[in-house]
Design a protein around this nucleic acid. Structure first.
Length: 382
DNA sequence: TCTGGGGTCCTAGGACCC
DNA sequence: TCTGGGGTCCTAGGACCC
């Protein structure tokens, strides 16, 4: 088995395909005059409103504009930028063409992660050439550019893509993991955000290398028996390597709105919740699955967010029941505090036979471990 | 500087039953 | 009177990703 492993052996690889400035690129396709100018897509396209940047073109990024940044900040950093509203149906159509192209690649198993990215599993002796053929095929079919990360696990492939951008390919495996990632902060890992990175730092684990050799008992004490070891594995780049094309089945649908002016009157709060509940029910009816649990999300001004949940006695499609439940969850929380945002989410009754997808969304936690062997048992030392 | 809207998953702890 | 251990269901709350 461990004999001469020739460079040309066909073995399984994980590729991560990520479109370059996807939303901006789609807009430039239908507005060619915007090519080369700073472009910001977000909200309703009005930078005086409460909304954030969905995507900034590379030209806008040179001014420091980033995804997730408030439009008000973006316009201050780049006053000459063109601002466009989000047009979800247009991006969904472009996304569908991209994913169909990926599914047409020989031997490819495609696991969609979002509008503009997917894992591609393939067994090949030359993953870089395969990645370049993906880039060419996507460009041919859609006029859109992408970058491809090549890895021996999902985490490595996902992170590799960033090093390939734009319009490139990058390989990240156990062989160069510590060379490339070892000195970077833990927040550079997929699945480690600001809170977890701070908690890791409080134990002296600042870098990916620190985390990779972290004391297991310390991680378990801090994060629990499941998440603790999971973070240790992330530090080593170890994760599932199984790409799964089972279609995703949604667990829940929700609607939330940030109000341009804070809500203060009980009447307007009740009306807002009724409106959100009505929109959620449209999604439920389209799906044909009733609501069994109601989630209420509230963001009070200036910026405190909280959630409440209640299971219903009987599953329902009735917007009145959902709205009444959501309002009930709000009582005792509000205390006359001004409300910036309200969200109503409905967890749906599982489909016939339950949820079958063996993978998880992949980012949240270690639950892919229950998918069994997918290469997640591999280990390396820093 | 001012922070969207769509999601998923994990942990802790209380209530309840056997 | 003082009191087990295990299991399941539920809610609260936190964290992350695109």
């Amino acid at each position: 088995m461990a004999s001469a492993s020739p460079a040309h052996a066909a073995v399984p690889w994980v590729l991560h395909v990520d479109m370059d400035q996807f939303i901006a690129a789609v807009e430039i396709l239908r507005h060619p005059e915007l090519a080369g100018v700073p472009l910001v897509v977000g909200g309703r396209g009005d930078p005086t409103e409460r909304a954030v940047v969905s995507t900034a073109s590379y030209e806008a990024r040179e001014f420091g504009v980033r995804s997730g940044m408030p439009l008000k900040v973006a316009v201050r950093r780049c006053p000459e930028a063109v601002f466009l509203p989000v047009d979800a149906p247009a991006y969904e159509a472009a996304s569908a063409r991209v994913m169909e192209t990926l599914r047409g690649m020989p031997g490819a198993v495609v696991e969609v992660l979002g509008w503009d990215e997917a894992f591609v599993g393939v067994t090949t002796s030359d993953p870089v050439a395969y990645a370049q053929s993906i880039r060419a095929a996507v460009l041919e079919a859609t006029d859109l550019h992408c970058s491809v990360g090549v890895g021996d696990t999902k985490v490595r492939a996902k992170i590799a893509t960033d090093f390939g951008k734009p319009r490139g390919v990058y390989v990240l495996t156990r062989d160069n993991w510590f060379e490339v990632m070892g000195d970077r902060p833990t927040i550079a890992l997929w699945g480690v955000g600001s809170k977890i990175s701070q908690r890791l730092a409080s134990h002296g684990y600042q870098t990916v290398r620190d985390l990779a050799s972290a004391d297991e008992a310390t991680l378990v004490a801090e994060f629990g028996p499941s998440m603790g070891p999971h973070y240790g594995r992330l530090g080593r780049g170890v994760s599932s390597a199984t790409v799964d094309d089972t279609p995703w089945i949604a667990r829940a649908h929700g609607r939330e709105t940030t109000y341009q002016t804070n809500l203060v009157e009980p009447d307007e709060v009740a009306e807002a919740i009724r409106s959100l509940a009505g929109q959620v029910v449209e999604d439920l009816r389209r799906e044909g699955r009733a609501c069994q649990r109601v989630f209420l999300k509230v963001r009070f001004a200036p910026f405190f967010t909280t959630n409440r949940v209640r299971k219903l006695g009987e599953p329902t499609f009735d917007p009145q029941v959902i709205a009444t439940t959501a309002l009930d969850l709000l009582t005792g929380l509000a205390d006359d505090r001004p409300i910036r945002l309200l969200g109503v989410r409905a967890e749906m009754v599982p489909p016939e036979g339950g949820y079958v997808d063996p993978r998880t969304s992949g980012r949240g936690g270690p639950s892919a471990r229950s998918a069994g062997t997918g290469g997640g048992t591999e280990d390396v030392t820093p």
